[in-house]
Design a protein around this nucleic acid. Structure first.
Lengths: 328, 328
DNA sequence: CTGAAAGCGCTAACAT
DNA sequence: ATGTTAGCGCTTTCAG
């Protein structure tokens, strides 16, 4: 089923059909109707492969993220979609599985479709991946993080600042025996940056984390619960728990409440990300909004503008005290 | 940057370069090395648009789902990916936003790229969408649900049965004043089918739901909490709450525990889906495993086999009693 | 093992 | 307002 078939059925040239179907150029209403009728009755679906090759235009935007299971990324995609929906562009998602080599492969595959833009999560990539992005000749935006050296444009928050700010908030509120609970994976660069900033923030206040506890595997209520139990058993004196993500913090919170601990008096908790689904826990977890939706929007806007800028858009993570930290 | 540039740099024909890059046909090791070297040094990325047009092969599988925010779909995608990773095929995701007209549009866009297969969530589509799927000439699999009339192949569970089985489990355990809590959206066909089956199951036991409570907007702990409070206030006699999803059930559970209710003695709860992140709640919620990962796998296997079957794979949802229902 | 020719289905550019 | 021509970058097919 090709343009030609439609053209024959409608008794016009292929070019006319092409014009009608793309609403381009002037076509008389009469022929337009005939063409539409022919296309509809034949069930014609245009071949974008051929169209893209001929026009050298592909209305796709590659989006490379680590995973779809981590709830942060759907939010970013939602932001991207909310902008691209008003353009002819469409996002195409690929996942790197938190693996740089695999990410390189995914980027290569994406670029081989000659998309109109590329959005990639994070600033850490293989040299080859960076080279591809730099030479792609299309707008490229790295998202989520601005602590590092972007290939081109970047939109994100500083995770180092986020960690440092959280440490300051905690210290300001008089907590002194502080533990960090996070993932052992060194592939989560942003969590590592938060930890780095967190240590710095504690140091400013003359503090050091009583413990840094790392888990293998996925975040979850069970993970948060288990880690929390471990830390509180080993260090009963701990008065604050800072988690790498709200998901783990929620598990920890539930554990602490079950044990009848005084929160936020005797023990404070904080997480990271601010997930809406979690509104409704017994206490609202102190957290930092990672601005995911807006990051997606801003990145998509840069792509839609179709300029090869090196602009870096740094958004500020917002501290949300919730109910699990004392007043300052 | 085209094949031709690489060919010139390597001093061979375009055809030879093409063969080397696709590891097809015999090429001497010497020329192979030269071609690879040339391609690498030029940073050549093949143009899949042109390749696809010439070969009439597109190694993409369209996947159309309602949303990425609903945690069920990432699990399905994970199952799909786990199978396609061992093939040359790649999934491309589009979202319908729980809107049939928009789904039709997304399917049209997908098909215009001439993918090798199409996986679509649900059995409810516009007539035009069904026609496109039927005439696409590629393997098409509808997933999640088998209660209805598939266009071609289908892999899923019966949501009617899931609802009915849950009603039976509840009745068997002696609960009698039962409420259903779900979404008011009539776009969630599967939840509606569960409700239908649930009513039937209750009827078998001579029961009718004391209340059916519907919420607008997104599921979440807050939503579950608010609905639960409403229902228990209006109907203090209720002894069982059946939620459309574990997410809402979790919010309800937390509310009930805060109120010091005796669960599962005085009040039982059950949800649907079985989400791993929720392992770690104070009590494990009774639920039914919706087999999402396996659904993804089986669907992808049908696509990878590249046959235009009309096979219907019906998986059985598994009842998981957890801690929030009494023993039978 | 390597190359030359033809063409995939469409659109840009130029007629008419 | 409509048609004609050429060609996008690659692969298929056929020759050597």
């Amino acid at each position: 089923m090709t343009l030609r078939d439609v053209a024959e059925a409608a008794g016009v040239s292929e070019m006319t059909v092409s014009r009608v179907l793309r609403q381009r150029g002037d076509v008389s209403e009469k022929t337009r109707d005939r063409v539409f009728a022919a296309a509809r009755s034949l069930g014609y679906v245009p071949n974008k492969i051929a169209g893209a090759l001929a026009s050298n235009r592909v209305n796709l935007v590659g989006v490379v993220i680590p995973s779809l299971s981590n709830m942060v990324f759907p939010d970013v995609l939602h932001g991207i979609g909310s902008v691209l929906d008003h353009t002819p562009l469409q996002p195409v998602v690929g996942t790197s599985k938190y693996d740089a080599a695999h990410e390189e492969h995914v980027i290569y595959e994406m670029l081989s479709w000659r998309p109109s833009g590329l959005i990639v999560a994070g600033l850490e990539h293989t040299d080859a991946a960076r080279a591809m992005m730099a030479n792609a000749g299309i707008p490229v935006v790295e998202v989520m993080d601005v602590d590092g050296d972007p290939v081109a444009a970047a939109v994100g928050i500083s995770h180092v600042s986020a960690g440092r700010d959280m440490a300051r908030e905690i210290a300001k509120r008089g907590y002194r025996k502080i533990a960090y609970l996070g993932s052992s994976s060194n592939a989560d660069h942003r969590a590592q940056k938060r930890l780095k900033g967190f240590r710095e923030g504690l140091a400013e206040a003359g503090l050091t984390a009583v413990e840094e506890c790392f888990y293998d595997g996925a975040s979850g209520f069970g993970t948060g619960r288990a880690m929390t139990e471990q830390v509180l058993t080993r260090h009963p004196e701990v008065d604050f728990l800072y988690y790498n993500t709200d998901i783990n913090a929620a598990g920890g919170l539930l554990y602490c409440l079950e044990k009848g601990m005084d929160i936020p008096g005797r023990l404070g908790l904080a997480g990271f990300n601010s997930f809406e689904v979690l509104d409704g826990l017994p206490l609202r977890i102190a957290t930092m909004d990672s601005r995911r939706y807006e990051i997606g929007r801003r990145a998509a806007e840069l792509i839609a503008a179709n300029e090869l800028t090196e602009e870096v858009v740094k958004l500020d993570p917002r501290f949300l005290p919730g109910d699990t930290v004392r007043d300052a």
